[in-house]
Amino acid sequence: MRSPTRLALATSCALALVSTPTAAWSADTPKAEGKTASTAKAAPVDCAKVKCIALTFDDGPGKYADKLLDTFKKYKSKATFFLEGQYVKSRPAFAKRMVAEGHDIGNHSYTHPHLRELSEDKIREELQKTQDIVKKATGKYPTTIRPPYGEFDTRVQAIATEMGMPIVLWNGGSRDWATKNETAIYNEVLKNAKRDGVILMHDWVEQTVTVMPKLLAALQKQGYHVVAVSSLRGFKDAKAGDVYPVGSEKDKDLSSESPTGDPEAYAESPADGL
């Protein structure tokens, strides 16, 4: 039979083992404050108070979109992706990730035609087909339209109004589709950077994706917050069928920033996966 002294000592040791975790157990268990910090949402950027710029990407999801998304996540920045329905069909996981990580998504038609050359029924078909396939892939509908080549007319505006979406163009470019050169893309974007600027880029251009870490770092060093278009000053006032940025449709240099002619002549993204 154990003595009272021995029994008390054994009980004390057992209680100590239960109530005090070992060093190894503690190291494997996250601290409460660390867990709270990792799950806390970042405060939204107020572009009325800070300098913002939006980088926008057409014709996607391109085959390099996952790497691009990794970079935006690392730099705690947001983008806007104007998606083609045919590529959402072939890369639904990329589109789903864009939405899940808080980026804006817009409608860039299904097959990238010149909308002004189509009948009204065909324009509706191009846009609605993309709306439906994006919703199926991501759970959300695109909320804006960027017509291919930046081309539109009163019929396109009327249909955008019917669908409840503003038309988003741009007021600066990268000419990445033309140069496919990292230094040229970097310099062109920084040359065109301005507060509340909307920059046109393409996520199927490999050099754009490769230079993005350097570009985001440079923009942040200049005091820019890289945000989605919906965060920019003035966008909240854009109604269905309105053109944003205001006055961008009058820019004579607009068309030179966008690929022209047959998209198959420049887009490297389409061939794979369709």
Rank of each mutant, 00 (worst) to 15 (best):
T5L: 14
P21V: 14
T22Q: 11
A23M: 10
W25G: 00
S26P: 00
A27F: 11
A27W: 07
A32L: 15
K35V: 08
S38I: 10
A40L: 14
A42W: 01
C47Y: 05
V50C: 04
C52N: 06
G60L: 06
A65N: 13
K67R: 13
D70G: 09
F72K: 03
R97K: 15
M98A: 12
G106C: 05
E117K: 15
L127M: 14
K129C: 03
T130I: 08
Q131G: 00
K136N: 08
F152R: 03
D153M: 07
A160M: 07
E162F: 05
G172I: 07
T179P: 01
K191D: 13
R195E: 14
M201R: 00
E206A: 14
Q207A: 13
Q207N: 11
M212R: 01
P213F: 00
P213H: 01
P213A: 03
K214F: 00
L215W: 07
L219T: 05
K221S: 14
V227E: 10
V229C: 12
S231R: 12
R233F: 00
K239D: 10
A240H: 11
G241W: 06
V243E: 13
Y244G: 04
Y244P: 11
E249W: 01
L254H: 04
L254P: 02
S255I: 06
E257M: 12
S258H: 08
Y266Q: 14
E268M: 10
P270C: 06
A271T: 07
